[in-house]
Amino acid sequence: MQSLAGACLAGLARAITGVIPIWLGTRPSQNQRIYFANHASHGDFILLASCLEPEERARTRAVAGADYWRSNRIRRVMAEDLLRTVLVERNWVERTQDPLEIMLKALDDGQSLIFFPEGTRNMSEDPLLRFRSGLYNLAVARPGVELVPCWIENMSRVLPKGMLLPVPLLCRVIFGAPIAVEPDEDRTLFLHRARQALLDLKPTNGAWR
């Protein structure tokens, strides 16, 4: 059921966006990975997943905000049963479970993750918001997992926030070279470098915005 839903969504994403993966700094591989990407649309992780090989897609789960996806029944069924997302609570005052623990458990189960280090959908004019510390915490806790930057192009135009129907536009996902935390690198420095690694993948011509 879940793999069927995954295959259908991937097929749909390809039919609407004609998406092609561009493996700029890395190749598809068996290694366990955290794909970290820019985020402006609910379609982002479906698009990214559709660029992975079927086996890798089957073991890759996206990390999403529990406060949003558990807010009503339809969303809950979609997120938990159909899309198999890893739901974490973003509000640190009221939360009952530590998000890091939930994500580390998924990694320890051998799963790859799709992770949006901005923590929310970017609605600003800037290409990328400041990174939250989640990516650094994951990288330090599980140094064996590859961190692959993925620039998602145009998806925010296909399915902007608050819209239900997608507009068919061509999309690309650009995969960069994996990065890792340097021995004596602190949190701020690493997050800055990770953000820059992702920004560097953004195509420079104005057309593919």
Partner: peptide, 27 residues
């Protein structure tokens, strides 16, 4: 036409407020 229009619109400047106009063009 669908494929051609998709390529064309991809290269234009669209804003969130154009969404329904764009959907109407395709659908």
């Amino acid at each position: 036409s669908f494929a051609a229009l998709r390529e064309y619109v991809t290269l234009t400047h669209t804003r969130r407020s154009d969404h329904w106009v764009l959907i109407g063009m395709f659908l």
